[in-house]
Design a protein around this nucleic acid. Structure first.
Lengths: 351, 351
DNA sequence: CTGAAAGCGCTAACAA
DNA sequence: TTGTTAGCGCTTTCAG
């Protein structure tokens, strides 16, 4: 049962007949190693199948080769528990893990509760335990000063996904306002004039942006936004149902609804049937997330697709490059394009 | 930018006025520390917000507080890329991350390609880099001798999810044969006698078990299994489509189909329409996975639900406990119950 | 019951 | 261009 002693940098050094440090230089692409020596070392590494220990690198050097992503605990657990899955996490893993792997890094997930007074302690604990080289923040953490201040003070570099505000850290985002505008224009182009909007959770930074895009598109056509068509929401299925029930009871109900999340769009869709509304015959519906459920619903929903994987990959890349070059904690804003997918849930309004 | 020097065990020792080692004992619930001293140390830990560094613990001691899960690369990436999501990964994260967190552990994911000749090198590299305290294997890795031998020789403890075969490592599984039997009996109970089965990928260990459950249930009723009703499959959507097309062309087509994966069930479902078959009117369909898509499809599919989160949690628990107690590499078999969810895709056959 | 010393595998600083 | 020396923060001996 005695674990065959792991091969270390020493073994490689001995095998190649060089010093420990030279091996280290080769591994880290350090300068000042002649080609023949490099080859010898590389041969030894390959022969022995040597892979440096992450823990030792972290302890000895200044790098941990770890990127830590913080996601909001409650919605994430809910998605998993309800077995609905979790598009955000999936796409983050997809974009982030692969990019990290490219550079010999690993990405770790940590769930912290944005509504807990333990938030800072949770974050601090994860940082102390892991000492990541960089941190990726997702909404709503992306704009939580308690976290960003903590990271900044700790001298850590980080990326804020879905945040476009200036400040510490890299902002990697899509244009939520333009996305909402695009979706709204799609409905306007179809001939809709009575368009409602089910808003996102006010806690999330993108919510006002999307609202602006929505109203902007409508007003640009010389129309006005009926305040009653602006329904509150919190991203949940139930909010979608409630919103459509309220909207349908209006004197002049809308002929189209844009919802700020897939769940809410699905809520709207499923509330339509009982109200005697067919989609898209009586009501067009557009979703703000292109999750699997949205694509498989009947009818399949027209939706905006957020570039979550691309944003995460970009974030990881920025962090790793910045760390590699030894830049000071950076910032900057990086806009990534969104997609808009037209499916079966939108059609011209009934005359 | 100078990262505020992290607080270490030394700081705690100084604060509590004890030696470094005493603090370590308290952290690790070691024996031989009087209550008052413990309290003093704990107070210091809380005051300073001290959290031990994972890397240092791994390097100094024998534990890394890391559990590594190996998933098959291709299907995982496909699920993410197609944005279909990945129920296995989601549920593993759910079950595994939480259980690990309970014990101060972390779970890491690694994708390795079961069809690559680099498989062993990939696994070896991950192990060398991370030195996990335990490993979780998912199908088809669970029964890949190249991997299990490697782990065993390395003295590592591991769990094999979805494998019930005896051998090194903990086998944590559900009864696939019983599940197939249960699903088949459901169809038999509805009055079906012409039941087809779209098989799983032959590479996966559970495939023969499921087949046995299927045929066993039918033969137990004194019926015989029409060989033409046994369709090959590989878990993909396309395989489901192909299978139903073949089945529908038979002289006496089946009135019900059990598919060994959600994708194949969906393929069957979607192939039914063009063939003029309504579900469940003309054809009942049962899926072997209860993924989000299956639940949202129209009609929603009757399905077997694998306890993936529970299996992963159990695996993590076994590994952590075993490591904590310093057991020799353990083995044993742990059966977890599955669920069977009846939805709208199954009904009595048309007379 | 508590403390002191050694070392885990690596990198950073310094020599050579 | 290469090698040598300290640690990094912890746990594991082994003393007290």
């Amino acid at each position: 049962m005695q674990k065959k002693r792991a091969i270390t940098i020493k073994d490689v050094a001995a095998e190649a007949g060089v010093s420990l440090q030279t091996v280290s230089r080769v591994i880290n692409k350090g300068p000042n190693v002649t080609a023949p020596v490099q080859d010898r070392v590389r041969a030894a590494i390959d022969k022995l199948g040597y892979v440096p220990s992450l823990a030792a690198r972290r302890l000895g050097g200044s790098r941990s080769y770890l990127i830590l992503a913080f996601n909001d605990e409650r919605p994430t657990l809910e998605g998993w528990q309800s077995r609905r899955g979790n598009d955000w996490v999936d796409q983050m893993l997809y974009g982030g893990m692969l990019k990290c792997a490219e550079h010999g890094y690993r990405m770790l997930f940590e769930l912290v509760d944005s509504h807990s007074d333990q938030l800072e302690a949770q974050v601090r604990a994860a940082l102390s335990a892991l000492h990541p080289d960089g941190v990726i923040l997702t909404p709503p953490h992306s704009e939580d000063d308690r976290i960003t201040d903590l990271l900044h003070q700790g001298g850590l570099i980080f990326a804020r996904l879905g945040s476009h505000r200036e400040g510490e850290g890299f902002a990697v985002y899509m244009d939520d306002e333009a996305a909402a505008r695009r979706a709204t224009e799609h409905l306007l182009d179809l001939g809709h004039t009575r368009i409602a909007y089910v808003q996102g959770h006010p806690e999330y930074a993108m919510s006002p942006d999307r609202l602006r895009g929505f109203t902007g598109a409508i007003e640009a056509r010389g129309l006005t936004v009926d305040p009653a068509y602006l329904q509150p929401g919190d991203f949940t299925y139930e909010a979608g149902i409630a919103a459509l029930n309220t909207l349908a009871a209006l004197e002049t109900p809308p002929s189209a609804v844009l919802a700020s999340s897939d769940e809410m769009a699905l809520g709207v869709l499923h509330a339509a049937g009982p109200l005697g509304l067919s989609v898209p015959g009586d009501l067009s519906v557009v979703s703000f997330d292109d999750t699997p459920t949205v694509r498989m619903s009947v009818p399949a929903l027209t939706a905006i697709r957020q570039p979550i994987a691309a944003m995460t990959a970009k974030a990881a890349e920025l962090l790793i490059e910045s760390k590699t070059r030894g830049d000071p904690p950076g910032n900057g804003r990086f806009l990534l394009p969104f997609d808009f997918v037209v499916r079966a849930s939108t059609a011209p309004p009934r005359r």
